[in-house]
Computed example of a mutant assay.
Amino acid sequence: MACLGRLVAGVAHEVNNPLGALQSSVNTMGIAAGKLSGWCKGQNPAIAERINALVDTLTAVSAQAESSCNRVTGVIENLKQFAQLDRAEVQWTNVHAGIESTLRLLQHAFGDRIDVVTEFGELPEIQCSPRDLNQLFMNLLLNATEAIDGAGGRGRVVVRTSAHEDCVIVEISDNGGGIAEEHLDKIFDPGFTTKGVRVGTGLGLAVCHQIVRAHQGKIEVASQPGAGAAFTVTLPRRPPEPE
Rank of each mutant, 00 (worst) to 15 (best):
A151P: 00
T102M: 11
F137P: 15
T118G: 05
I148E: 01
A109M: 09
E171G: 00
R154F: 03
A151T: 01
V159G: 08
R87Q: 15
R131F: 13
E171W: 01
Q135T: 10
C128Y: 06
D86E: 15
Q81G: 15
Q135H: 12
G111C: 08
V158Y: 00
L140N: 08
Q135C: 09
D132K: 14
W92V: 01
S101N: 12
T145P: 02
A83L: 12
S162K: 05
L85Q: 11
R104K: 09
V159I: 11
G121N: 10
N94I: 07
G98L: 07
G121R: 09
P130K: 08
T93I: 06
T145Q: 05
G155D: 01
L85G: 14
R87G: 15
A151I: 01
D86V: 06
C167R: 03
R113T: 15
S129Q: 10
G121I: 12
C167W: 01
I169P: 04
M138S: 09
G176K: 00
L142K: 14
E171C: 05
F137T: 10
R87A: 14
E171F: 00
A151N: 07
R113Q: 13
E146D: 12
E100P: 00
K80Q: 15
Q81I: 02
V157W: 00
L140D: 07
F120M: 13
L133P: 10
A97H: 04
H96C: 06
Q84T: 13
L85N: 13
A144P: 01
E100H: 04
Q135A: 07
E119V: 08
D112S: 12
G121Q: 10
G150H: 02
L141H: 03
D132S: 12
Q107G: 09
A147S: 13
L106A: 04
A88S: 13
A109N: 07
I169L: 03
V170L: 11
S129E: 07
Q107D: 04
E100A: 09
L106H: 06
H108P: 00
D86H: 15
I114N: 02
A144W: 02
S162Y: 00
R156T: 11
H164F: 07
L106M: 08
D86P: 12
D174Y: 09
N175T: 04
Q135E: 12
N143V: 00
A83Y: 10
L105H: 08
F137A: 09
H108R: 15
F120V: 15
V90S: 08
F82N: 14
E89L: 11
A144I: 03
S129V: 12
E119W: 02
S173P: 00
N139R: 15
V95N: 02
G98I: 11
I126V: 15
G176V: 06
K80L: 07
